[in-house]
Design a protein around this nucleic acid. Structure first.
Lengths: 334, 334
DNA sequence: CTGGTGCATGGTAACGGTACCATATTTATA
DNA sequence: TATAAATATGGTACCGTTACCATGCACCAG
C-alpha cells in the first residue's frame, strides 16, 4: 500500500503539501494540487483511516447494539442507521447482545478498545454501561429505553399512545370485552403498551378485568399460549390486542386451532407494523412504528452529538399510526 | 484514556515490560507482572486497537456486503457470521449494497481505507472488485456467486439439487403439469434453480413447456404477477415451484385472489426456508437452505484464510433439504 | 577465570498520518 | 520604499503501540 510519503516523493513535494491537498486545508497552488492528485491516482493511494484515527482519536465508526438482528424489528432499524451513517462517512459495527450481560460487557470492552465514536443502544441498557459511556466520554443514544440518570440522547415511539389507538379502535368497532396479550414486566415498552390499553378502556368506561390480560415474552409461541388461555375461558374476549405482531401471529394460530375465525369470532390487533403483518392471513391490523425513521433520527442525533459534544441531549418521541387491515374489521359490521 | 505509558509510569517499569505483560511475550518476572496488572486495573487501561493496527496492519475487523439486510435471508446470515467472528475476536461492519455499483464502489473504498482484514461478499460480485481485493491482498469469500478467475474462497448451497428436490416432490405427489416462477437471468442462483427444475422434469420423462415458466425478480409482487399469468392460461398448472419463498408468497396471494385453494387447486413449493414459510397460511413447503451454517462456515473459512494467507482457497457446497408442509400435500391424496 | 546461556528489563525506531511552526516569495498597502 | 498580509511550501514532533536491539545479572561449564 502506498503511503503519503510515496505520494509526496512521486509528486516531488513534501508530505505536508500532500496532506493539505488531501484535507483541503491551508494554501496550495493549483498546479501543485494537480501534480499531487496525479500522483495519488497513479499510486492508487488511499489515506489510512487507522493513521488518521491515531492522530485525531476519531474512527468514524459507530456501534449498534441490538438483542438479535434476526428479530424483525432490527434489520429495518439497522438499515436506516447504516444508510444515514454511510452518508455521513461513518461505518456501523453490529453487536448482538441477546440481552445477555456477559455479551454486552464483551462488546463494551471492544467498543472502547476500538475507539468507537458513538453507540446506539437498541438493546436493554444497564445503568453501569451508561455510566461507563459517560465517563469515557463516548457519545451514545438509547432507543426505546428509560434511563434514570442525567439527560441522555434518546429516541422512542409513543407506545402508550400507540396502544391506546389499538384498543380504541377495537372499542370503536363495538367490542367491549377486549383482551390483552402483554409483554414481560421487565420491558418498558410492554408496560407502556399495557398502560395505553388501560387508558382506552378507562376512557370508554369499560372496567378493567385482569383475567383478560395474559403475559407473554414477545415471541410467537407465548402469543399462542396466552391466547389459548383466553379461549378456554367461559366467556372469552371477542377482541384481543397483542403487544406485538409476533404474539399476534401466535394468537392467530391459536384461534385457528380452536376452529374459530378472525375477525368474525375474534378480532386481533398487533403492534410494530412488521412486513409480515401485511401478508398474514388474514391481514393483520397493527400499530405501525416508524422504524426507518427512528433509525434515521437516531443516527442523525448521535452523529450530531459526536460532532458537538457540548450540545444539549435531546429526547425525541415519534408517533406510531394505526394500520387497519382485515383482522379487526367484521365484514358485515358488528 | 490511559495509555501504556501511564501504566508503565504507575507500575514503575518501562513500556516494553507493560507490552510484554499485555501480549504474554518474552520474559517478565511474576512480581513485575502483578505490579503491572494492578496498574492496568487501577487506571482501567484498555490497549488501543488503533495503535496496534498501526503497527500490525491488522484491524480485526471484517466487512459483510449484502444487498439489503432487510431481505430475510441476510439477518440470519449476518447473525451467524457475527457470532463466529466475535468468538474469534473480530468485529463485523455491515454494508448494504442494493446491488448498486456506485454503492459497492464506495464500500470498497471504505474497506480499504479502514484496513479491513477480510470481506464476505453475499451480494453480487463484479470481476473488477474481485481483482481489487486480490491485488490489495485483502482476504475475501463469496457466498452463492460464481467467480471466473483463479481459485477463490466460496460457500454455496447446491441450488440445482435443492430445486430438483422441490420439483421431484411435486412429481412425486402425482403432478405432471408443473409451473415454475423463476428468478432473474442475471442471478446464478435463479439459473441453478431453473436447471434443477428442468432436471427433475427430464428425469420423470415430462416434456419441458416454456409457457409454464414465468420470470420474476425474487420479490413478492413479481411472484404475484407471474402466478396471475399462469392462472389465466387455458390449462393452468396444478403445481408451481417458486424460485424463492417471497415469490411463493406472492403466488399464494394470486391464487387466493382467483378464488382457488392451496393445495387443493394449486400446490406450491418455495425455496429458502425463511421463518415466515412455516407460519404462512397454508404453511409453505420449501427448500430449506442451511443459512446459519453457511454463515458460520463462511466466517470460519475467511478468518482461517486471513491467518494463513498462503493456504489453499477452498470451495464448500452445502446441501439444502426439502421441508414438506401443507402447501404441496393434498389432504385426501391426489 | 572466561564465556555462553537463560532471565529480566529498558530504550527507541518504526507504523502513516496531521498539526504546528518556520521559511520563503509574491502582492497589497501605507 | 518599507512593511504588512496573503500565498506557498517544507520540516518534524506526536498519536499509542510493538519489534528489535542493548544491557545487566546470575549461573554453569570448560
Amino acid at each position: 500500500m502506498a503511503t503519503i510519503r510515496d505520494v509526496a516523493k512521486l509528486a516531488d513535494v513534501s508530505v505536508s503539501t500532500v496532506s493539505r491537498v488531501l484535507n483541503q486545508t491551508g494554501y496550495v497552488n493549483e498546479e501543485t494540487k494537480k501534480k499531487v492528485n496525479r500522483a495519488i491516482q497513479q499510486l492508487n493511494y488511499k489515506p489510512s483511516q487507522i493513521a488518521r484515527g491515531m492522530v485525531s482519536g476519531k474512527t468514524n465508526t459507530l456501534g449498534l447494539i441490538v438483542p438479535d438482528i434476526r428479530n424483525l424489528f432490527f434489520p429495518e432499524l439497522a438499515r436506516a442507521i447504516e444508510d444515514f451513517a454511510q452518508k455521513m462517512g461513518y461505518s456501523v459495527i453490529i453487536c448482538n447482545s441477546d440481552n445477555d450481560r456477559a455479551k454486552e460487557d464483551a462488546y463494551f470492552q471492544l467498543l472502547q478498545e476500538k475507539h468507537i465514536d458513538g453507540v446506539i443502544l437498541a438493546s436493554e441498557v444497564s445503568q453501569s454501561h451508561i455510566q461507563t459511556l459517560q465517563e469515557r466520554g463516548i457519545a451514545f443514544l438509547v432507543i426505546d429505553a428509560i434511563v434514570h440518570s442525567p439527560p441522555v440522547l434518546s429516541v422512542h415511539t409513543d407506545h402508550i399512545h400507540g396502544a391506546y389507538l389499538a384498543a380504541a379502535h377495537l372499542i370503536d368497532q363495538g367490542y367491549r370485552k377486549i383482551g390483552h396479550l402483554r409483554g414481560p414486566f421487565t420491558s418498558s415498552t410492554a408496560n407502556d403498551r399495557f398502560e395505553g390499553y388501560c387508558l382506552a378502556l378507562r376512557k370508554a368506561g369499560i372496567a378493567y378485568d385482569s383475567n383478560l390480560v395474559q403475559i407473554g415474552d414477545y415471541q410467537i409461541k407465548s402469543g399462542h399460549e396466552a391466547m389459548a388461555k383466553l379461549l378456554v375461558m367461559r366467556e372469552p374476549p371477542e377482541a384481543v390486542f397483542a403487544a406485538n405482531d409476533l404474539m399476534a401471529l401466535g394468537a392467530m394460530e391459536a384461534v385457528a386451532e380452536h376452529g374459530l375465525k378472525i375477525p368474525d369470532d375474534v378480532a386481533i390487533v398487533g403492534f410494530d407494523g412488521l412486513p409480515f403483518a401485511a401478508i398474514a392471513t388474514p391481514k393483520l391490523t397493527t400499530v405501525q412504528q416508524p422504524i426507518y425513521e427512528i433509525g434515521t433520527i437516531a443516527a442523525q442525533m448521535l452523529i450530531e452529538s459526536i460532532r458537538e459534544p457540548q450540545k444539549e441531549k435531546l429526547s425525541v418521541v415519534l408517533q406510531p399510526s394505526l394500520v387497519i387491515r382485515d383482522s379487526s374489521v367484521r365484514k358485515g359490521g358488528k
